[in-house]
Design a protein around this nucleic acid. Sequence first.
RNA 1: GGCGACGUGGCCAAGCGGUCUAAGGCAGGGGUCUGCAAAACCCUUAUUCGGCGGUUCGAAUCCGCCCGUCGCCUCCA
Length: 452
Amino acid sequence: MQIYDTLDKKLKDLNSNRTLNIYICGITPYSESHIGHAMSAVIFDTLRRYLLSQDYKLKFVQNFTDIDDKLINVAKEKNTTIDKISNKYISQHLNSLSKLNVMPADHAPKATEEIKEMINMIEALISKEMAYEINGDCYFRVNKFDTYGKLSKRNTDEMLAGARIDINENKEHPMDFALWKKQINDEPGWESPWGNGRPGWHIECSAMSMKYLGQNLDIHGGGRDLIFPHHENEIAQSEGFSDNPPFSNIWMHNGLINLKSEKMSKSIGNIISIDDLLQKYSAAAIRMFFISGNYKNPLEYDDAILISNEKAINRLKQTLNLNSSDSLDELDPDKFINKFNQSMSKDLNTSLALGSIFEMSRSINQSFNKNINISKSQLALAKLLNILGIDTDSENETNNNLDTKEIEDLINLRNKHRLDKDYKKADEIRDKLEAMGIAIYDSDDGTKWRNI
RNA sequence: GGCGACGUGGCCAAGCGGUCUAAGGCAGGGGUCUGCAAAACCCUUAUUCGGCGGUUCGAAUCCGCCCGUCGCCUCCA
């Protein structure tokens, strides 16, 4: 398996001989998770499922940054505690992801439960003079880390030229970033060698990934927007601390979701929550939407595409439900499986992989029509879909309060008219059902219905 | 201003030096099935890859310029 590394800008092989350590940056739980978080989670879940299917061993950690300025502000506004806010959104987040068929991480540490590790790390950085304390705040000394900027391909001078960086009186250098922040008034604080305070943004990921996965990760992932400053700073403090580069062998970043050509983010406020999306579309269609293109590229949110994915999923479902003949003449699925695996192993090319799935589906349908035994291929197809986390039996959560009894009564009435060959009345009932949002179809097995 | 990504059929999207007259999905057209439909199935739909030059025996794929869209440089998946 090869993955594109943001830092070295090339494809890199994954070591299959030992357990792979994978760390994905999680959310800051201060508001409801949006579909951008969902996309990121689905992409890394797809990676994980594929690796497992290829017998890789891996440890998968995703954190929660449950202490930060925004969390403090929300708690203040709502007159409650950061605990209550973060717990609420963490459980909501996990719940939404499980509906999307995202597997839970092996470890999901919370920043607030790893304060001691962070303090140890900051102390070590200070003793190495890579960091310093001023008035209860601690900062990382950017100029002490030679390769600062290597991930985001920029240097401190260029960034300063941008002149949009707030110059904090306390810092030695404007680009130095906070490792520890002094407690102010009634804000939450933990005891530390520098007085009460709380961790800065980046340090939690360094501390937690090292604690659970060691100093050299195989893959460190997250959204593109984390490249700077978050991941850049993580590298600086982690490698500065360990003197054992690389902090991560591969940096893997997914593209972001755009809404009307504008990035969707909590700060802009153009948000679609995961649960909103799940109300409208099945988990299967949503997952297909997220992986329909290259994971590194931005994705434009588009209802028309989600609807088309819903239809595509439906076709797959039909193929899976075909009753195979028990003929000795059997359709061999290997060709499709191989293409699928080749695509996936080359930097997670999910679009090509999906292509092979649809080719397989068509081939199965054709074979079915020729009475060829397709059961082995159907099983293989189901397996591939499972690797993509696409569960064709998933339904959306639409809860349109329809009266099932009423629908069935209408269908029975229509069938009576059909038997009497009174097609005019039968068609009227069909139109009425359609107006109610119900599509019906006659099959050998009786009349079926579904939501439109 | 600096750094980076992207521009492929009506829409989404893969391909990144020859097997490309360009995968796959949706929509469209034709057919099977049906009382008629719907759903499903089958067949079909780009000599062309933002524009202009260049490199090469050969380019959607490499290089240059231009046009356009977006992201990062401040919190963000």
